[in-house]
Computed example of a mutant assay.
Amino acid sequence: MELTTVWFGLITVLWIGYFCLEGFDFGVGMLLPVLAKDDTERRVMINTIGPVWDGNEVWLLVAGGATFAAFPEWYATLFSGFYLPLLLILVALIVRNLAFEYRGKRDDATWRRRWDAAIIGGSFLPSLLWGVAFANILRGVPIGADKEYAGGFFNLLNPYALVGGLTTLLLFLTHGAVFLALKTEGPIRHEARSLGARLGVPTAVVAVVFLVWTQILTGTLASAVAFALAAVLLLAGLASLLAGREGRAFAGTFAAIAVAVAGLFLALFPDVMPTTLADGVSLTTTNAAATAYTLKVMTIVAVIFTPVVLAYQAWTYWVFRRRIGVHHIPVAPAAVEGPAAPAARG
């Protein structure tokens, strides 16, 4: 197998990890105004992701770095053509991260409300725009013979891409609700389980529409199998949620997102960014790749350090595996409260 194919596969795995892990904490952030009745319940929800949200974002950083190193032409065209949506995502993530760190620095209701709004908006915008961005990559964008993006921002706001954005938004909401049902106890747990079941139907419908549309546009036999399996896994997860089996439900939504993302990359391969112009040039794993020596060095580094990173993140999830509830939250917030501190007591 060529190293270009290996690195396309590794980048696929990195995006799978990002969407599966960051997906549920985006969902938790968006559900703050829906499931939390007061500040204590909001703190419970935030603390479910407090120990892990920053680790989840590492998958995005590594995916971007791997793309830059392994497929520099892809990276250059993607980040120049999608500059505005990617900038909006970056700003939203920065504001969201600041909100997690600064929300508890002052014992003031207005202060906390404003940072809560930052968490909600900083979770909503990336959830929508990641789907829009990936849908455009699959559909193809105007790339000229010089391998440069030849379109504008509004070329990205086509019906297919908007359905893609709605798909990731609903998937992350459902994934987040299931995660909260798994990680909390008391009223939040029961309300999250109920909400996840209600969200499941529209999520499944929109996801199936998007995956079928993708299959018609650019699908292969392998992607068709992956999309069908993803639909089955999502339905199985929702059925488990209705039965009160939150662990199996979370495994179902997690696996559904993972297999669906894998199917999207299978539908894209061997392209990495197809063109819609008759006289344009599609970027592929061959013509967008770095030199063979670069790929060899990167492969050695990945083989050494990837297991270490995976082991550390798995250990983090294991340490903070217990459920938390309002009784784990101190009556008065600490002067330097951080999002992970109360979770460690749970």
Rank of each mutant, 00 (worst) to 15 (best):
K183S: 04
L180I: 09
M30A: 08
Y293E: 15
S223G: 06
G140Q: 01
F172M: 09
V308A: 12
L173T: 04
A278S: 08
A69R: 07
A258T: 09
V141K: 00
G27T: 05
T291L: 06
T168S: 14
K296G: 15
A197M: 13
A117I: 09
Y102E: 06
G65Y: 03
G140H: 05
T275Q: 01
V232N: 08
Y293G: 10
A224H: 06
A302Q: 14
Y293M: 13
A255R: 07
M1T: 13
G196K: 00
L170H: 02
A231K: 00
G280W: 01
V261C: 12
S123E: 01
A36S: 14
A302T: 15
A69Q: 06
L295I: 04
T294M: 11
L87N: 10
T275W: 00
A334I: 01
Y102G: 02
T218A: 13
R113V: 05
A290F: 11
V309K: 07
E101H: 07
L277H: 03
K105H: 07
F250Y: 14
F250M: 11
G144N: 11
L264V: 13
G247M: 11
A231E: 04
A204I: 03
F124D: 04
F227Y: 14
A260K: 09
L242Y: 11
W7N: 07
G152S: 10
N97A: 13
A343R: 03
G9Q: 09
T110R: 15
W59R: 05
E2C: 02
I11C: 07
P330K: 04
I16T: 12
E246N: 15
T253K: 06
T306L: 10
G186T: 07
R189F: 07
F134H: 02
A341C: 00
S123H: 00
W74L: 14
L156E: 07
A66L: 07
V297W: 06
T299L: 15
L86T: 14
G144R: 03
G29N: 07
M45Y: 04
